[in-house]
């Protein structure tokens, strides 16, 4: 028995190690066939399976058992079998399902992007642009709850939350303790501490980085700037709690926000502590490494709105040549 398994996604084949999920295999191939993921987050154990945006069709289960899987499966939590054939972007059924799921995620969303700090780096914006429809038949009232705080540094806007559970896993896995969770159920379910309480841990700020939408935002950066107008720099400092390797988001040379470094799938590469994130906002706190070009595909990638002449225009593989499909 060979150590690697062969999987074919949208006609492209790749050999992957045993235990690889379809989604991870798709990411190895890259391009348009990579399913969107709103809840799956590789660094967080147990995440995935919930948002249903990454559904794919398995048209051949494996070499041994070629029967297709009757239902669409979540690619993030379905392991590759040898000889599996998967349809992602090329399948009409998958496209329809993703459209439905996207619409479901949006019906109770406030659509307050103009005043949302996450705008420009929001996965829900990207999802609805790439996989959504340009209209909805939703006529009912939207969920409407007051924004809340999780402590003095983190803003919680439950209306924007898509219940991906990432922040719950992050608190559980990074902080050692957990004071917030998902309360109530169904469409009343929400992230909360139940009892007025600030989240107190050296690593709780990471919930901001893992949140795919504007539900958890950094209060120290609130309404300071549109994210695409900030200049991003890789920087580090010596820190006794974390790796100290961060991204500085600067406005007019001043540090406006500190966040962890993310890979091309917008997943944090190394967690950072709250001291680095919230308390080190002076230039002398940091050793600058280089100008940063975000690795994920988004409006910030080109940083083209910046008037800084130092700004480096880097063509990112796949962007530009690959235009989002026409809206209906």
């Amino acid at each position: 028995m060979s150590d690697t398994l062969k999987v074919t996604i949208d006609g492209q084949s790749i050999q992957v190690p045993m235990g690889t999920s379809i989604l991870e295999a798709a990411r190895m191939i890259g391009g348009k066939l990579v399913p969107p993921a709103m809840c799956y987050y590789k660094p967080l154990k147990g995440s995935g399976g919930k948002c249903r945006t990454c559904l794919v069709a398995v048209t051949q289960g494996s070499e041994k058992d070629p029967r297709p899987m009757p239902k669409l499966v979540p690619s993030c939590s379905t392991s590759v079998m040898d000889g599996m054939v998967v349809e992602s972007a090329i399948s009409e059924r998958v496209t329809e399902a993703r459209q439905s799921v996207t619409e479901f995620l949006l019906i109770n969303h406030p659509l307050d992007c103009p005043v949302c700090d996450q705008a420009g780096e929001c996965k829900l914006q990207d999802l609805s642009f790439e996989h959504g429809k340009s209209f909805t038949n939703y006529k009912e009232e939207r969920r409407d709850n007051e924004p809340d705080d999780l402590g003095d540094k983190i803003k919680l806007n439950v209306n924007r939350c898509i219940l991906c559970y990432r922040c719950v896993y992050a608190a559980e896995q990074l902080c050692g303790t957990r004071d917030h969770g998902v309360l109530y159920r169904g469409d009343h379910a929400e992230i909360s501490t139940m009892i007025e309480k600030s989240l107190d841990s050296d690593f709780i700020g990471n919930v901001i980085d893992v949140c795919p939408v504007g539900a958890l935002t950094d209060k120290t950066f609130r309404f300071r700037s549109r994210i695409w107008f900030t200049e991003q720099w890789n920087a580090h400092r010596s820190c006794d709690k974390c790796c100290g390797k961060v991204v500085l988001h600067k406005i007019d040379g001043q540090i406006a926000r500190v966040s962890a470094r993310k890979n091309e799938w917008d997943e944090v590469e190394e967690w950072i502590c709250d001291t680095c994130r919230f308390d080190k906002k002076e230039n002398e706190d940091w050793t600058i490494e280089s100008k940063r070009v975000p690795k994920s595909k988004s409006v910030q990638t080109l940083n083209k709105y910046s008037d800084n002449s130092q700004s480096v225009y880097v063509k990112v593989e796949g962007l530009g040549s690959e235009r989002p499909k026409e809206l209906e």
């Binding site: 995620l105 939703y138 009912e140 219940l163 169904g186 469409d187």
Partner: peptide
Amino acid sequence: HHESCGQCSPCREGTGW
């Protein structure tokens, strides 16, 4: 709608709709 656990989006949002 009342009994949806709220974990996955189609059921959480769709049943209420």
